[in-house]
């Protein structure tokens, strides 16, 4: 079943690592421009759910539909292209290429999709301005603070105009002031660009930036407001 108007839907996902079940009948859906928090204790399966939704991990059973197409019917190359052009990613840390400057990092997804350096960097700077890090363009990731680095990572995730951003504990390594600013900027930018955000977190204060939340417990996703 695909809830009306949803962009990305998962139904009855099962995934085991060896004999350990990570997902046990999880379902999920998100609409364009919606911010959904995926919550749950450590080991509940929330990161596995995110990896399945993003096409990084293939579930053992169940269906994932993105914009009307089932992910399982796509080739590896098609799924890679989907991740590059339609999805953006923000992780807890270690996601920026250390050898590149911040602006080159933000421009990277555009360059990989064939954009010319000048055009890619111009778009990158627009997003960096939005995330209040445009003055860091020439610096390398090691030369900026954790909070600034996460804003650069958010700018990179948004630069290729994705339809969905997957954020896995995006503020987990930041102090609360920096973390909140990153969340504010991420959710504001995503909402105004009609980008859906799947926000994996175990923190209620982070989840409070979402429009609704889904709880994963023992590999099952529970959506109290919108049962799917």
């Amino acid at each position: 079943m695909t809830p009306a108007g949803s962009l990305l839907t998962a139904h009855d996902l099962h995934k085991s690592y060896g004999s350990t079940p990570a997902l046990d009948g999880a379902s999920f859906s998100i609409h364009p421009g919606e911010v959904v928090a995926v919550m749950g204790p450590s080991g509940s399966g929330k990161s596995t759910l995110l990896h399945c939704l993003a096409g990084i991990v293939t579930p053992d059973r169940g269906t994932i539909t993105y914009a009307g197409r089932e992910l399982s019917t796509m080739s590896d190359a098609e799924r890679s292209a989907l991740r590059r052009t339609e999805f953006g990613f923000v992780f807890q840390f270690g996601q920026l290429v250390p050898e590149l400057t911040c602006v080159e990092n933000v421009a990277l997804p555009l360059r990989l999709s064939g954009a010319r350096r000048k055009d890619a960097e111009r778009t990158a700077l627009t997003w960096m301005e939005r995330l209040e890090v445009d003055d860091l363009g020439a610096k390398r990731p090691a030369e900026v603070s954790g909070g600034q680095g996460q804003r650069v990572a958010v700018a990179r995730a948004l630069a290729s105009s994705p339809k969905v951003i997957f954020a896995d504990e995006p503020t987990g390594a930041l102090d609360s002031l920096n973390g909140e600013r990153v969340l504010e900027l991420l959710t504001e930018a995503a909402r105004s660009a009609n980008v859906a955000v799947v926000l994996v977190t175990h923190e209620a204060r982070v989840a409070a930036y979402s429009d609704r939340d889904v709880t994963v417990r023992d590999g099952r996703a529970r959506d109290l407001e919108h049962a799917v």
Binding site: A208, R222, L224
Partner: peptide
């Protein structure tokens, strides 16, 4: 507990 959790999060939002 789930219903309470949801109510708390609603107010936090």
């Amino acid at each position: 507990l789930d219903a309470q959790r949801s109510e708390h999060l609603r107010l936090m939002r």
